[in-house]
């Protein structure tokens, strides 16, 4: 038995909701066909929005199914190879990943990279990724500290809370929009799973994945010290800094829950039961030009 899922063309000019809509359709269709051979048919594709492409690569890795990609038009074959669509660039502790990543200095993207969580090289990896992203976008020097904050807090979060094996990162700079599209993901137990594992806030969550996502965004941590509320700043401060301070956009998908926060509003969404994301993924649109009135210290308090 064979099943075919059509991969849509998702242009970078499409509305952001459209990219997620296409992604959810592909996930739903792929999850539905759980026997026999599965094919992703790329014949309609000519461009991939980064917020469609990166989750698609990561989903393909985590869904534990053998998916054969067919009918890739010649115009996209090269690009898919460059971004490591079929096999993310593996960053191992012993690898000379600095040299590998520095070769992307003059490009506009960093391919989908997979790194081991809880390894000692994670700060070095971030430092080099940040240097490459800044070089690619010729970013305002004032983006340095907020970018360090976003990478540092969000990667530390997945390291501390996801209980996953791998983290993923992808970046694509668009000159026309003058913004960096940055995707950070893990293959862990989801935010809901993290609260369940800790046994904390279970009454407030009430067995609901969206309530868990909302609590995490409010800064309720599973790892506070006894008698202290010292943790849980990572997601909430990063999101506010990005959207309120830098005028960017923030999206988050964890298990069956989705969150969006941008200049047009915020919403927490319970996805249909037929859609489930293995782990947590954060997608950010980061404007390269920092507003004159941006004050980093406002977002660390």
């Amino acid at each position: 038995m064979e099943d075919v899922v059509k991969i849509p063309n998702v242009d970078r000019d499409e509305r952001i909701g459209s990219a997620f809509n296409h992604l959810f359709q592909v996930i739903q269709h792929t999850d539905k066909y759980n026997v026999g051979n599965l094919f992703w048919d790329f014949s309609d594709t000519s461009f991939f929005h980064p917020f469609f492409l990166a989750p698609l690569v990561i989903y393909k890795q985590s869904c534990k199914r053998s998916i054969e990609c067919t009918n890739k038009p010649s115009r996209v074959v090269g690009y898919l190879d460059l971004v490591h669509f079929d096999d993310p660039l593996s960053i191992k502790e012993c690898d000379d990943f600095k040299a590998v990543l520095e070769s992307y200095m003059s490009k506009t993207y960093i391919p989908v990279c997979r790194f081991d969580l809880c390894k000692s090289n994670i700060d070095d990896l971030q430092t080099i990724l940040q240097r490459v992203i800044k070089s690619q976008s010729k970013a305002d020097y004032r983006i340095t500290t907020p970018l360090s904050h976003l990478l540092g807090e969000l990667i530390d979060n997945i390291n501390e809370h996801s209980y996953g094996k791998h983290g993923y990162i992808f970046s694509q700079y668009f000159k026309k929009e003058n913004c960096i599209n940055l995707v950070i993901a893990d293959d862990g137990i989801t935010i809901f799973g993290s609260y369940v594992r800790s046994g904390k806030y279970l009454d407030e969550i009430n067995n609901n994945e969206v309530e868990a996502l909302k609590l995490a965004n409010e800064g309720k941590s599973t790892k506070n010290l006894p008698g202290a509320e010292n943790r849980g700043y990572g997601i909430s401060s990063s999101k506010k800094m990005l959207v309120d301070g830098l005028h960017g956009s923030f999206f988050m998908l964890s298990g069956g829950a989705f969150h969006r926060y941008d200049s047009n509003g915020a919403s927490f969404i319970k996805l249909p039961d037929s859609i489930n994301w293995n782990g947590t993924i954060i997608l950010m649109k980061i404007p390269v030009n920092v507003p004159v009135d941006f004050d980093y210290s406002k977002y660390t308090k």
Partner: peptide, 14 residues
């Protein structure tokens, strides 16, 4: 804690 005021939307179908 700054409470997230945005409402939760639940979708049962695609």
């Amino acid at each position: 804690f700054s409470e997230e005021k945005s409402e939760i939307k639940e979708f049962d179908d695609m």
